[in-house]
């Protein structure tokens, strides 16, 4: 049941416990308990909102930064990841396979802000060997959701 609840919450985090209960054919109390349990276990870490900022006044810029680092003795990549994620400018940090080590997304008010953050904060961290900054120009799909303008027209006409 937990997986089914997670599927529904991924689809729409604003489904009420009652709605989830009805759709899964279980009681609302069971849903409530399962969600509380998953929150406590750190499986559900939060609920956020998917925003297409292009349609808002917000002019923040986002960049994907490739980071190459030297793993620290004993701690490996963990220590440096911990330091990176502390910055409020950092939206996400992932350890990657392939040509670089960390993929970091950084958000800032403008290009220079992000550039300065990378130059002054990220690249100067102990163990960081190099950075490559890629600015996001446009987002087409996020969290599995197509951000493109949806035509409101249901093309279906056949009542059979």
């Amino acid at each position: 049941m937990n997986k089914k609840i997670l599927d529904l919450l991924c689809e729409n985090a604003r489904y009420s416990n009652d709605e989830i209960a009805v759709m899964l054919g279980v009681s609302a109390d069971e849903v409530k308990a399962a969600i509380a349990e998953m929150e406590a276990a750190g499986i559900i870490c939060g609920y956020t909102t998917l925003i297409n900022y292009e349609k808002t006044e917000n002019e923040d810029v986002t960049a994907l930064i490739e980071l190459k680092v030297t793993p620290q003795p004993d701690a490996g990549f963990e220590d440096i990841a911990k330091k990176i994620k502390e910055f409020k400018e950092v939206e996400s940090v992932s350890l990657m396979s392939g040509g670089f080590d960390f993929a970091v997304t950084v958000k800032g008010a403008n290009l220079r802000d992000v550039a300065m953050f990378v130059a002054k904060r990220l690249s100067t961290l102990e163990g960081v060997l190099s950075t490559a900054t890629h600015f996001v120009l446009r987002k087409y799909k996020d969290m599995g959701v197509d951000l493109a303008e949806k035509s409101a027209n249901d093309r279906r006409v056949m009542p059979f």
Binding site: D154, R156, V157, M158, P159, F160
Partner: peptide
């Protein structure tokens, strides 16, 4: 008979249809 009914609905504004017979 369904066809006729559907045509009436198609001419109204703000209609929410639960009438179609095919997947969305």
């Amino acid at each position: 008979g369904i066809r006729k009914y559907f045509d009436i609905a198609a001419q109204m504004d703000d209609v929410i249809s639960l009438g179609v017979g095919e997947p969305d």
